[in-house]
Amino acid sequence: MLQAFLQNIINGLAQGSVYALVALGYTMVYGVLQFINFAHSDIFMLGAFSGFYLAKWLTPIVPNPLVLLLATILGSMVFCVTVGLTIERIAYRPLRSAPRINVLITAIGVSLFLENLGQIIFGADPQVFPALIATKSILNTGGLVLNNIQVLVVLVSLVLMVVLHWIVHHTKLGTAMRAVSFDIEVANLMGIPTDTIIIFTFTIGSALAGAAAILYGLSYPKIEPLLGTMIGLKAFVAAVFGGIGNILGAAVGGIVLGLAESFTVYYISSSFRDAIAFGILILILLFKPAGLFGTFRREKV
């Protein structure tokens, strides 16, 4: 009983950290531009594939697994940032003053484009993500299993989130970002270069998605071009759960969702794994629409 409970917590934490990293990308873009960047999930997918090819190429060259891992993560992050910024420049920036619905539809269009392009380039069949480091169990007592990958996933996520927190709260750029997400027009009037801040936001969000993709590939080594859809939706749910636009909220939301899923699979049925996220979403929006840490702005009459 207790073992099962603890095992679920371990699994949930590992899965939740990936959700949290992806959720951060959603929440930051939403905070600054007030729209759901549907393409974020596909940036995650592209991160996984870039890591896949990069790792294949690097494995014979780099003997040290730790260096290999770091190189793959960094490479994937750089690739995701490039894609994210390209999307922002080509598809989103021209719509800066357009109605929100148009931006939303464009985002959906970009997402479909990347998914379908991915199916052509990578093929629709799942590929096996290379095991960059061998799985070793750290703990294995009485049915309780904890392996090095799980620890790694949680640790890397934690480090990234701490760095993000530091950037947002202790640097000039971070302060400007918070100002823009508070009120983009006023921030603009105050001389904050909003376009630069938006680029900065997309950079961080995409980089986190890239890192998350590698961590995901290590834990669930099957990747395919539609991989981003479900993870993206769940990460978005996590962001809404924590209060969209709120960075701490996204992190907490991701972990909670990971735990909830893990428990649902164990205690109810694995086939409801995907439904639980949406169930949580609907409940939170009905009873606390601003999310756990969010504040709701009422329209002025």
Partner: peptide, 24 residues
């Protein structure tokens, strides 16, 4: 209670839940 993007995502969630119910 919801508007805009929030409503979009909730209706999306409902759609998926309905589909998952058929699946099961």
């Amino acid at each position: 209670r919801l508007r805009g993007d929030y409503l979009a995502i909730v209706t999306l969630g409902f759609g998926e839940i309905i589909r998952i119910c058929f699946l099961n």
